[in-house]
Design a protein around this nucleic acid. Structure first.
Lengths: 217, 217
DNA sequence: GGCCAATGTGAATGACCGTTCAGGGGCTTC
DNA sequence: GAAGCCCCTGAACGGTCATTCACATTGGCC
């Protein structure tokens, strides 16, 4: 009888077949799944390697440390997110409403479809060492600034009329509110629900446009 | 030189004076701060007890385990939240718009003012053992259902006209979107910002009313 | 003073952690 | 078939973990 009750919300993986992919990819994939299901600090290097049919030591042929592995996973998710957000806005023409709608739709579809990736990138970031957390935070800020820019522009052009409090607007707060909303679909969306990914995205885009007081087109 | 790099985003506490409060309270308070700053799995029992000027062993005179301590902290925050949400809605008269506005305002003010409590309750819940997580989830569902009820009622009475996708409404999704938005103010709100707590609450209530298409009163 | 219960101490227990490293197999290239 | 390289194994290292326990210490009450 063990004295220490293991901190395990989900069980550690049973030994698996050797993953046929190149080891770096196999490790990344296994780590990703484990982090998503159980959280970085309670996933051991042994767990990860067992899940792709290797032993602990082999990790260090491909990554410098467990910390680097986490950063590698989060950074690739986050970079891709930033890229598709920029792309969506750039491809939406010059109308602020179209830009905001395009942004929200792409953002929500991605957070539904790749909800596990999003979850890990958002939840596990705090375990990254200080040096490695900086570029992730920069990317997040960049995404927020995309939204702030769209809002600012829309207000200037008179197509948005976002709520004011005591006569003042706080576009940064509104941008954060919209982003929080969209980001956290990934926490509860499941394909079994009433709406599909695209429908969910449309719903969120509608709500966002209403929230910022978009004039009818 | 240690071989194991400690998973520490924030340093462990230095030894502290003995907390003058009754030990149960002192432990709860110290644990709460530690969990908020560094996350449940990396906070050790030694850390908690050092922070209130006791030694590890003394914890077990007051709590059965580290897990029970976490549950105790989260449950009290969550219970109080559920209580004030019900109260807010009950005290808002019979108009659906007033109910939704009252709910959002109370919810946001609380998440600004007690943002650390909210953060712990939301972030650390996943470390709770299966038995202890059930009642927290029930309380969360109850809060969501309050919102769903307000929305359903408002739609029936014709004072809300929330977005539809493909001719259908998903009020549960809309309720989740509103709640996600409000909950996560606690992740970034700081008293240094442009808006105070009450102003933030008013902003969020405005956005919520707009999002659900509330007719002017 | 003696007794009791509540509460604190700190060593001990048995386990697991990330990381290192000596050894060894199985390629390709000569 | 030898050499060289890449990659894997699994034991070992130095450490930390939650929890238990035999043993103080405390303060109230007779």
């Amino acid at each position: 009888m063990s004295k220490r009750k293991p901190v395990r919300v989900v069980e550690a993986p049973v030994a698996a077949e050797r993953d046929p992919r190149p080891p770096v990819e196999a490790i990344r994939a296994a780590a990703f799944t484990q982090f998503a299901e159980r959280g970085y600090p309670v996933v051991t290097v042994r767990d990860i390697m067992k899940a792709c049919g290797l032993t602990q030591g082999a990790l260090y042929n491909h990554f410098k440390s467990k910390d680097e592995l986490l950063h590698d996973i989060i950074a690739s998710t986050q970079g891709e997110l930033e890229r598709i957000c920029q792309q969506a806005v750039a491809g939406a023409g010059d109308d602020s409403r179209a830009k905001l709608a395009a942004f929200v739709r792409v953002y929500v579809v991605r957070h539904c479809r790749l909800r596990v990736e999003a979850l890990v990138a958002n939840r596990e970031i705090s375990w990254l060492g200080a040096e490695r957390v900086a570029d992730i935070r920069r990317s997040r800020r960049a995404i927020r600034d995309i939204v702030v820019t769209i809002l600012t522009e829309g207000v200037q052009r008179g197509v948005f009329d976002p709520p004011q409090v005591d006569g003042r607007r706080d576009l940064k707060a509104i941008a954060m509110a919209l982003l929080d909303q969209c980001t956290h679909v990934s926490m509860w969306y499941g394909p079994g629900g009433q709406l599909g990914e695209e429908q969910m995205a449309k719903l969120y885009a509608d709500m966002a446009l209403r929230a910022v007081g978009a004039k009818p087109q």
